[in-house]
């Protein structure tokens, strides 16, 4: 088996209008890694590709997926072509189409030369109640949520608290053990990029620069879920600290230093989670 470096692949999913474009633009404008963005057209593109292209020239648009026969130019070919480049990207971000199952897209991330980092699935606070019950696409919505490794409720500033809590309960009943954050696109983008290690993070000792990310609304079903969430952070996240609310309303003080995680009861108000990562 070859031990060449494997490029991490992040998949961004979520139903039409959930904010994938905004998120990708945020990622492109703020991330420090070399990123290749793949706009997945294996079915459709619900995204204005030109908008992405303005910001960053390393965007690949899938153009000719063949549905009838499943061969032809596909996501696989795009990934192969990325490996052919002289300067490899440090992270590949794939935008799944608004009706795609992110798990099906992520299945391509196991091609030699890549490894699958996870699926971030966005849920539109203003639309999710309708979408989840829609007779035509309700199941699509459910499959997307169930495919997530990290769920993010977007556009929460445009929805009332009661709607948000309903959305939250729909989402957590579909994917009870998946971490769920309520956040802005900008914050999410830096979280995601912190999840993605830099290509040279193996030589972490030489780093002196750190970046800080605040996740303003982190919630968890229970302690186990919170623990799993923290455990899933990659090694580039060297510290995490904050106060997080559980589903039953109790709060926990969370600390992660290296791989050591501590969770303790607290009466203090929630603060969100501050992440410190190697830059």
């Amino acid at each position: 088996m070859t031990q060449a470096p494997r490029i991490p692949v992040l998949v961004i999913g979520g139903y039409l209008g959930a904010g994938k474009t905004t998120l990708i633009n945020n990622v492109l404008s703020s991330a420090t890694q070399r990123i290749a963005v793949v706009v997945n057209d294996f079915g459709s593109v619900n995204i204005d590709a030109s908008l992405i292209k303005e910001k960053h020239n390393d965007t690949i648009e899938l153009t000719n997926g063949c549905i009838c026969c499943a061969v032809g130019e596909s996501l696989a070919d795009v990934l192969f072509s990325i490996l052919d480049r002289t300067e490899l990207p440090e992270v590949v971000v794939i935008e799944a189409s608004g009706v795609a199952n992110p798990a099906a897209v992520a299945a391509f991330a196991h091609i030699e030369g890549f490894h699958h980092l996870g699926n971030v699935v966005l849920v539109d606070a203003t639309q999710a109640l309708e979408t989840s019950k829609d007779p035509l696409v309700g199941r699509t919505f459910a499959l997307q949520v169930q495919a997530a490794h990290l769920l993010a409720i977007t556009k929460s500033d445009e929805a009332t608290d009661s709607v948000i809590s309903e959305v939250r309960s729909i989402v957590s009943s579909l994917a009870p053990s998946t971490p769920l954050v309520l956040t802005t696109s900008a914050t999410l983008s830096s979280l995601m990029m912190n999840l993605a290690p830099h290509a040279d993070s193996a030589v972490a000792e030489t780093h002196t620069e750190f970046s800080t990310t605040t996740l303003s609304h982190v919630s968890a079903q229970d302690e186990q879920q919170l623990f799993a969430f923290l455990q899933n952070f990659p090694s580039s996240v060297v510290r995490a600290k904050g106060i997080v609310e559980l589903a039953n309303g109790n709060r926990r003080l969370v600390q992660k230093v290296g791989s050591t995680i501590s969770i303790s009861q607290t009466e203090l108000p929630t603060t969100g989670l501050v992440l410190i990562s190697l830059k």
């Binding site: 499943a70 061969v71 596909s74 996501l75 696989a76 990934l79 192969f80 099906a104 299945a107 391509f108 196991h110 091609i111 030699e112």
Partner: peptide, 8 residues
Amino acid sequence: REPAAMAL
């Protein structure tokens, strides 16, 4: 199964 795995 499926092009993703075939592409291996």
